[in-house]
């Protein structure tokens, strides 16, 4: 037993140290930098200021914020619309296809998502796979301008994030009690009512979990707008990337990062509170 304890303490210590250095310490550095004055010659000036945060309220940054929310929201919606039927069918299936389909869902993770985004470029570009295919079928006669549009960014984001919606939904729907569906049918509910009154409300936690996993990364996957949207599409992630790599304004980049983290934090806490309320209600 003592050996088990030692091993546990050791594991916990390693994980804590790792998180402490690479997550907490890094975040504290960013937090610290966000309150420093920018300096074009060095990383920052050791002078406390709130100006980085007040800058964020200028219309330019507010617009980027809202646009990011809009794109991330739309991306989440598309992922729900595409992912829900997929997860539902996957969870209801009992055949051996289920394992295969799950495997197909996970295989893309074996390749870096950056490389997969380059593959999307090859598919979407003017003389790319998709245009050639559509022309070959005779559906279109001239290649479509897909690459460097908002559509391309949306396709890229949905493609990259769809599994993060499907997997929690699948986990939720897979343990769904079939007898509830039978009970609803027995009581006279049609397919639509069974879905809207029984299946959908009970899979809401899965939808919420998937939405958080999709919505938050959707705002920050900067290389997707970079590669697929050209210079036109700007997400919060791109804004941060630009501050650090292009304009070398680390304090402003830090301030945006901290703000984004705070927004995400608030959303997670809201989710946690709502789920806590729900379960609290159940066991009163």
């Amino acid at each position: 037993m003592k050996g088990d304890n030692n091993f546990r303490n050791f594991s916990v210590a390693i994980i804590s140290t790792w998180l402490g250095i690479f997550a907490l310490f890094a975040f504290l550095l960013v937090l610290f930098a966000s309150f420093m004055q920018p300096d074009s010659n060095k990383i920052f000036n050791f002078h406390f200021t709130l100006s980085n945060y007040t800058t964020l309220f200028s219309s330019l940054y507010v617009i980027v914020f809202f646009k990011s929310f809009y794109i991330a929201g739309a991306c989440t919606l598309f992922c729900i619309l595409l992912g829900y039927p997929f997860a539902y069918i996957l969870a209801r299936k009992t055949s051996r296809w289920k394992d295969l389909l799950l495997l197909l869902l996970i295989i893309p993770f074996w390749t870096s998502s950056l490389i997969r985004s380059y593959a999307m470029v090859a598919i979407l570009k003017t003389k790319g796979v998709l245009n050639n295919f559509l022309i070959h079928l005779g559906i279109i006669h001239h290649p479509l301008q897909l690459l460097f549009t908002n559509t391309a960014v949306m396709i890229g984001l949905v493609y990259n994030l769809l599994p993060f919606m499907i997997l929690p939904l699948y986990a939720n729907l897979e343990k769904f009690d079939n007898r509830l569906i039978e009970a609803a049918r027995d009581l006279g509910a049609g397919k639509v009512r069974t879905f809207t009154k029984v299946i959908l409300p009970l899979s809401l936690p899965g939808i919420l979990a998937g939405s958080i996993l999709v919505f938050l990364p959707a705002m920050t996957l900067f290389y997707i707008p970079d590669l697929l949207g050209g210079a036109k599409a700007l997400l919060l992630g791109n804004l941060i990337e630009n501050q650090f790599l292009l304009t070398h304004n680390w304090p402003l980049g830090s301030a945006i990062s901290v703000t984004l983290t705070a927004v995400m934090g608030i959303m997670l806490v809201a989710h946690w509170l709502s789920s806590k309320n729900r379960s609290g209600e159940d066991f009163l």
């Binding site: 007898r179 509830l180 049918r185 027995d186 006279g188």
Partner: peptide, 20 residues
């Protein structure tokens, strides 16, 4: 005939109450 058109109702083994 589907279950609800039979004027027959079932009490399921695990009750199958709608938890929400």
């Amino acid at each position: 005939l589907p279950p609800h058109e039979r004027h027959v109702h079932t009490v399921f083994q695990s009750y199958a109450l709608f938890p929400h």
